Computed example of a mutant assay.
Amino acid sequence: MQPPLLVLLLAFFLLPGAEAGEIIEGKEAEPHSRPYMAYLHVKDKKEFRCGGVLVQKNFVLTAAHCNVRLIIVTLGAHDIKNEEETKQNFLVKKAIPHPNYNNKNFSNDIMLLQLEGNIKQTDAVKPLPLPRSRKRLRPGQKCTVAGWGKVSTWGPYSDTLREVQLTLRKDKDCEYRFRRSYNSTIQLCVGDPTENKASFQGDSGGPLLCKNEIQGIVSYGNKYGEPPRVFTKVASYLPWIKKTMKSLQLQNPDHLLWS
């Protein structure tokens, strides 16, 4: 049974008019085919959405620019507006943005969220393991990203999870577009400029999967949603992610991590 405070907060966040993000030119995902997807209800001065990926039974990986004073995490969702028995809702116990995150150029745009409790693993809620090592990603390689929101730049918002296949680009494509803000050591350039397919506002923090591994986190792009766009390169942060989760495990021995 949900705590009364959490129920009230969720009702508030799902009121019409909240800003949302979008997957441009994607398709609706098969319900619960991505059990690691997290939907973040975010409130600061206004309400907006972010995505995330469940990587341990009480940790979600997302973007550092999604860090505000109140975040509610929903797991096991397909349709965010309808009641689904598969949903599990959590308040965030601790938000840990990367210590070198720069909100001016979005470098080190990655954050861990420690949930208030552990998930109940089901077919609709399962963590996605972190990649075990750095793998060489090639320009032209196909990857996928998912999120909740509009079906086009100016279209209506979608309440259901949508997904789209995107192409990895050469670093020089983003170096040309974003100049000094793009860093190939810690970022990925994603999206073919000849195709109208992209992640966009509110998809921030969602995972980019290449061969079913988390390789990127949605970070930033131009304000019109045009590809290519920039994703945080997860492999560059594996030591920090693992060290941070281990440290919090030691502080909270009741929240044991899976190996």
Rank of each mutant, 00 (worst) to 15 (best):
S204R: 13
V53H: 00
K43G: 01
P127G: 11
E47V: 08
L9V: 05
P99G: 13
A64C: 08
L209D: 12
R136D: 02
I186R: 02
E116R: 08
I96K: 01
T160K: 15
M1D: 11
A64D: 04
D254C: 14
E47C: 05
D109P: 06
R134H: 10
A18D: 07
G21H: 07
N103M: 14
L161W: 07
L70E: 10
L91K: 12
R180C: 04
K81I: 12
G52R: 00
W258S: 14
Q201A: 10
S184K: 09
F231S: 06
Y182E: 06
K93Y: 01
R179M: 02
L209F: 03
H32R: 07
N100L: 03
A95L: 01
E213D: 11
R180E: 15
P97G: 11
K233R: 15
Q114G: 05
D79I: 02
C174M: 00
L257Q: 07
K223L: 14
Q187W: 06
G155M: 08
E85R: 00
K46V: 13
G51M: 00
Y157D: 09
S236D: 03
G202P: 12
G221Q: 05
C50K: 05
K93F: 04
D173K: 02
L250G: 01
N252E: 12
K150F: 05
S199M: 12
K135M: 00
P4Q: 15
L91G: 02
F12P: 04
L6G: 09
A29H: 10
